[in-house]
Design a protein around this nucleic acid. Structure first.
Lengths: 338, 338
DNA sequence: CTGAAAGCGCTAACAG
DNA sequence: CTGTTAGCGCTTTCAG
């Protein structure tokens, strides 16, 4: 028997009722006699009937699917976030479909243009390379919530972390340990690299506040925020002879890469060099030394994003874009506190 | 203008052609005059028309969506795998929707029962707690590819890694270093924990082959394969006074947790205790000491899974279930080779 | 409380 | 090369 072709009306015929009644039962509507209900349920089971979601979606004008667009799933921060978003969405009966943008502007523009229009009811989007202009001319009216940065105020709902303040706090912590030559790993040349710019700003603020000079040779650019880049950047820093006594890394993987280089070359952490990261991924709590890191409330981030999106989906588009700020804290661990 | 309600016929009206012609243009069919095509494209752009995928899907009987069902996205192995699957699927024009089963049997049964029938064209499924019986009575005929274990031969296509052989090889490597008291972390009581059982079998095989006695006190059970469990298990092992000189962990996170406990308590790795893991996640290549691990070819795993599934989707269900074996290698690093 | 019929937006036949 | 029409499987009026 080809089960793929069992429809509402097959069930109706078998149960001796109309399609409407079957539909009512399937959707759990109230006014159905217990007797009819039982009969219909039996027929459903016998035929192994499954509602065709495409048809339901077409009729209802919604799919119950939301997209989550992130740069890469194998970056732990995004993996953890994705897991949380999937879980939150499910609580609301929503299914999550994943887009990997690779952090490239081209693919991020596609997301903004709504290349999955009518398939998804909304999108949660963590952009990396997107510019304000890309957002400004947005035609697609699929509800969208942006994560991480206030890329373009007023254009969409945002869930943000105060990157400047957080970076400042991490750097001040390093300065507070008496470190004088505090390097930064994670600068990016790309004009669109908003995250990098904000964290760098916080770093500079902190230096100034601590009365330390800003030395741009201590600021190392990276291609991506991965471990390999952190390792490379740290090597460059050590080879430069500038002898930093602390490093603030703009992500945890960068910090873990840097830590690897330091330990590999026989330096101690935090003895010779104190190390702080950003994101508080699980790895950081199990390396030795454990990693001091800015810990954004990822659970809240995911929940707020889903809530905001769900609200937008039900209420329709209002003109006013909302911004929700999520808490963070500095988790001080062995890499600065050995 | 409410763009959400622009349909094929609106475009047709504006362009002064029939819906069919617009459909032809949108789908890139051949026989359309360049003039008409241009006119239609202009109309599409002007109205910001997007095809309604639900409608298209309903009509075509397929959605272009496949599901990837994994226990948790924040387990690095699954995150890396998910990233690869999403990328492979995209190359074939497929979109991936993620289900997190939490590794619970109940939720895994739902996947097998096809709770997303008609929404997805196929599913790639990495089960943890599923039993052969759960699979045996499968009614849903959505194409499915199972990952990781041959849970039930003949019931579905599989992409597998030879867990027994791999675990054996890792354990033999430890024995080859002259270690005599080789512990194992990762046993699971659950009858359904196939992975655990296979890796344990490989471990026992290796002990026998190396002429070492099997001591079940050296085999530590865990709840999950996460870092925290590894740390706990290692602590228990140390507290037991059994003084193992090597540990084979059934996953990298378990190994990283164990490493943390060892280093925290002042033991050296691999000096006092050599450590090997399973999965070769990125973290393992950046901790100090770097982690020796069984490295399955994840890229091949993802590609094979998508290929197998795509094939099944196009060809329809044949009776014969296929099994593809993916290569692995033992990546020897500092944790056993300091 | 249940039935009949319309139609969501699209594509596939079939004409022209 | 283009137009007309039917219908995918479902939910939703509107009657009964």
């Amino acid at each position: 028997m080809d089960r793929a072709r069992v429809g509402l009306k097959d069930v109706a015929r078998l149960a001796g009722v109309s399609v409407k009644t079957v539909s009512n039962v399937v959707n759990g509507y109230a006014h159905v006699t217990t007797a009819t209900r039982t009969r219909v349920e039996a027929a459903v089971k016998e035929l192994n009937y499954r509602p065709n979601l495409s048809a339901r979606n077409l009729r209802q004008g919604r799919t119950g699917i939301i997209a989550l667009a992130v740069p890469e799933l194998d970056v732990p921060y995004f993996a953890e976030l994705a897991g949380l978003v999937v879980a939150c969405a499910e609580e609301r009966g929503l299914t999550v479909l994943i887009d990997q943008t690779g952090g490239t502007r081209e693919r991020e523009q596609l997301v903004v243009e709504g290349f999955r229009a009518h398939l998804i009811d909304g999108v949660i989007f963590s952009p990396l390379a997107l510019t304000p202009e890309d957002l400004a001319g947005r035609l697609d009216d699929t509800p969208m919530v942006l994560l991480g940065e206030r890329v373009y105020p007023g254009s969409a709902d945002h869930v943000v972390v105060d990157n400047v303040a957080a970076a400042r706090e991490a750097t001040l912590h390093l300065a507070g340990l008496g470190r004088r030559r505090i390097a930064a790993i994670g600068a990016q040349d790309d004009v669109a690299a908003e995250t990098s710019r904000l964290r760098l700003a916080g770093y500079r603020d902190a230096l100034e506040e601590a009365g330390l000079p800003y030395d741009d040779r201590l600021v190392v650019p990276v291609e991506t925020y991965r471990r390999a880049d952190g390792a490379r950047a740290m090597a460059a820093l050590l080879d430069s002879g500038l002898a930093p006594d602390a490093v603030f890394c703009f992500s945890d993987p960068l910090a873990l890469g840097a830590m690897r280089t330091l330990l590999e070359r026989g330096h101690t952490v935090p003895g010779d060099v104190a190390l702080a990261g950003f994101d508080d991924i699980e790895d950081g709590r199990y390396v030795t030394p454990t990693l001091t890191s800015i810990s954004p409330d990822k659970r809240a981030l995911a929940r707020q994003a889903v809530d905001l999106l769900a609200d937008r989906m039900s209420k329709g588009s209002q003109d006013v874009a909302r911004e929700v700020r999520v808490a963070y804290r500095l988790a001080i661990r062995e890499s600065t506190n050995g």
